[in-house]
Every structure is written in C-alpha cells, then in structure tokens.
Amino acid sequence: MAGLSKSYGHTRVLNEVSFGVPAGSITGLLGPNGAGKTTLLRLMVGLGRPDLGEALFDGQRYVDLAEPTSVVGCLLDASAHHPGRSVSETVVLHARYIGLSARRAVGELVDVGLGPVLKRRFGALSLGMRQRVGLAIALLGRPTHLLLDEPMNGLDVETAAWVRDRIVSFARQEGGCVLISSHLLQELQSFADRIVVISQGQLAFEGGIEQTRNERSCIVLAPDTAGLLTALNAAGVGFAPPGPDGRVAVRASSATVGGLAHRHGLLIEELVPGDARALESFYMAITKGEFSPESGVPHGAN
C-alpha cells in the first residue's frame, strides 16, 4: 500500500498511509475508533475511492484483478446480507457471482460449521454465525489474501477460538497473507506476526510483534507468594500486586527472577518471560491515549 490518503469534506481520515503485508504472515491493523482502519480496508478493495495513493495485491489494484475473489477474500461487515434470505442461498448467490457451483458454496458452509443452519434465515443468525457466513464467503474463491475487519468482535470464546484457528491455518498451512483489524489486543498478540498501528489517520508503527514485547519483564507464580515478594523487595525489583490467581508481574528478566528464587530457596511453579499485556502497553504508548475519555477528543466514527 503506497501513500493512501482520504478526506471526507475537510476531515482528513487517512494521510499518506504506506505499509506492506508479507505472504504467509498475519498482520494486525490497530488503531483507536475513528483512526481510519475500516476506511483503509474499504479503500484497498475499491469500496471507496482514495484521494491519493493505491493498494496493490500481487502488483495489481483490486479493481483491475481479473478474478478478484480468487486473490483477495474480504470480511468487512458480517451483517451486510439480506436478512430474508436463507444462509445457504446467501452463500450460493455469492458463489454464482464468481462462477462457482452451489455445491462448493454449501461445502464451504459445512466447513465453517454451519451445516445445521443452512435453511435458517440470515436475519435470524447470531453475530458469531454471521461471522462464520462472512468467512465462508471470503474463503469461497480460495484467495491468497484475507482482509478481515473486526472478525472476532462480540464472539463467544468457542467461536473466537475457531475464527483464530482458521486464520492461523490460512496463513501458516496455506501460505496466505492476512490483514486483520481488531480491538482485542491480547487475542491479536497470541497469533499475529506483525502489527500496523494507525493513529489520527497516519501510520504510527509498522513492525514485528516481537518489537512490542518487553523482554525485561515476566510473570511468576510461586506457592510462597509472600516469600517471593519479600525477596523481590529485598533485591529492589519492581513488581505489580499479585493477581487473584497468585501470579505476579515482575519488572525484571526471567533469568534475574530465577536467580533470586534460587538464592532464597523459593520454589517457582511458573515463570513466563515477557508481559502478557505488552502489546496493549505498546499500543497505548504509540497512540498516546488518542480518543480516550481523558483526552477530551470526541470519539470518531470508523
């Protein structure tokens, strides 16, 4: 994507945003509400017209691709289908649009676990089921790229895990390239390879997920929590109050904490390097709380 810019009236929504998404990777697209993420995804596939710049898939604009759905699969708005049509008919119509058979469409629906609700009206589906329908449509053309806008919003744990596994399998096993916008930072941290942060319409960060990790922190679980805290205090190592499960976030490397426990004869049950909320901390630092209630800036529509 090169220099994508978009304004609505006098409001600049995107300002020369450029970044790349390598094949076989999952890239998280992050940004506060109103930062321009959804606009960016829509401009990439020709649902809006950029003022400047362009997005290319294998060297071509989406609108110039001969068979666009075999290159890019999109899930941008899971609810944007006619509510009075059956689930199977909804997907069969999309299959027909791109010259595929009804059998292929139904097969895709069965693959995403919607076999039992093929005859149900689309309008009667839960959000999770609609997301599955959207993903089935996105995958119909066997694309090499996936663009997903908040695909896990409002999903139950089981469906969210299923969507995550499907995305991971698409990238890792099928070699696909995924760009996914999400507000669920910890979820994204668990499977994204790279992140792109958009803030106030501009690219604020682009890089590997490992760049967001703080290697000088760890999570510790010890049966003798009080003894652990005493040892940490004595060594002058900072830590957060223990959580309800007894785990303690420590501002020191796992090697430092391991050595300390050894010297004090403490048993360690669990020692996890890095900070489970590292991406969130990194994101907050990058966006500087843009659009947060404290910033005094009103929420924008995405």
Partner: peptide, 18 residues
C-alpha cells in the same frame, strides 16, 4: 434498491468491481 438498503452491495462490488 434491495442491495443498497441491506448493505449487500459491498459484497457484490467485491465480486464484481466493474
């Protein structure tokens, strides 16, 4: 009008950008 009213037009333009 149906596709525009139910926002399904986006899916159609994705399948046929022309």
């Amino acid at each position: 009008t149906s596709d525009w009213q139910h926002r399904e037009i986006g899916s159609i333009f994705l399948a046929q950008p022309r």
